[in-house]
Simulated assay, not measured.
Amino acid sequence: MMKTENIIVGISIGDLNGIGGEIVLKTFEDARVLDFCTPVIFASAKTMNYFKTHFKSGINFHIVNNINQLAKGKVNVYNCWNDPVKIEFGKEDVKIGEYAIKSLEAATKALKNNDVDVLVTAPINKHNIQSEDFKFPGHTDYLAQQLEGESLMFMVTESLRVGLLTDHVPVKDIVDHITEDLIVKKIDTVYDSLKRDFKIGKPKIAVLGINPHTGDNGVIGSEDDAVLRPTLKKIKENGKLVFGPYAADSFFGSSNYKNFDAIIATYHDQGLIPFKTLSFGQGVNYTAGLNKVRTSPDHGTAYEIAGKGKADSSSFKEAVFTAIQIYKNRIDYEELTANPLKKANK
């Protein structure tokens, strides 16, 4: 049963040599955040106290070895390891990657077991996390395996939402991945998320083209006409307000994106470059389509400023509040669908 008060926010600490520890501390140094949730950081007391000392933070942690020992109104730290960790800010380190995975796995387990209500992930280094036991290009792919549903990378702010048909796929392989089945699944996921997670009754979705100028009638590629356009036509005929494909080069510059509840880009940079240009520091990476809520900030480990006290925690804080709001929206949606007369009687 989902609850509306004292929402427990699980936090995976990410790459310890990056800015994750700093942005987590800065987020919860504002005690007002604790009025909205109970955070639990999956790391270790030694590690978090190291960060506290290094960044001169005034946070007092509540350390637990059992997830049932969490204290409301406190910043909880769940011990995932007890050994000392050598932290060297700004350095890529395979050993540090192992701790990032320990944190992620423990936090995901707690999410699956309903010990935490939502998950917010601090940035990882996609290279140093690779091992025989962990062969995922990022959080989204790992969580897609661990949790139920059709996962989709959904970059969101209050006024802009960008989903991806393909995410961490090499550019040379993008076209091979874009099939009618994939397009239908991803649009369904975005559509359902807009209704369930963002309270939009009749979502309006734009889809960007695969090729420049959506292929220019086959002059610059045939995929838009052969695959994308006819699939969108079928989807629209089935009742969804889906439009496109639109030429990506002018779509955002012309402010056309403001006419839609969400935009679906066909590949990673086509969507994320304009999204981060328009909203960097305020954007949130939300993994839509899963049975659990997971968000993260819209940036990486930022090794170049790690340990210097310069990291901006705005996006991480937005990720926390977005996770809380989506969790609450899902409660409202479930109540409404279980009792459709409730809306009519309001």
Score class of each variant (00 low, 15 high):
I263P: 09
A247H: 00
Y327R: 10
Y303N: 07
Y191N: 14
S57V: 03
F316H: 13
G218D: 06
E180R: 13
V171L: 15
T277W: 08
G253H: 11
N6T: 02
A311K: 10
G20Y: 02
E223L: 08
V320N: 11
K236F: 07
V75T: 11
G20E: 04
E158Y: 12
L25H: 00
I59H: 08
S255H: 13
A323C: 05
G221R: 10
H168F: 04
T53L: 10
I41E: 05
D192N: 15
Q270W: 09
K56L: 04
G218Y: 08
V33D: 04
I210Y: 12
S250A: 14
G73I: 10
A319M: 04
D298W: 13
T189M: 07
P84R: 07
V320R: 00
A319K: 12
I63H: 06
Q130M: 10
K342W: 11
C80V: 15
G138Y: 01
G253K: 02
V320Y: 07
D224E: 07
E334A: 15
Y333M: 04
G239P: 06
I331G: 04
P203D: 13
V120I: 01
L182F: 12
N49G: 05
G300Q: 09
G138I: 07
L70Y: 09
N217V: 10
K236M: 12
I263L: 00
V320G: 05
D133S: 15
Q270K: 08
G14T: 01
V120A: 06
D249Q: 09
D83R: 14
N66V: 06
T295M: 11
D115F: 08
H213K: 03
E318L: 12
K72E: 14
V64P: 03
A248L: 01
V227P: 09
K233W: 12
S315P: 09
F134W: 02
L272P: 00
I19K: 02
S222P: 00
K202A: 13
K185G: 05
N238M: 06
S279G: 10
P123Y: 08
P170T: 00
P230Y: 10
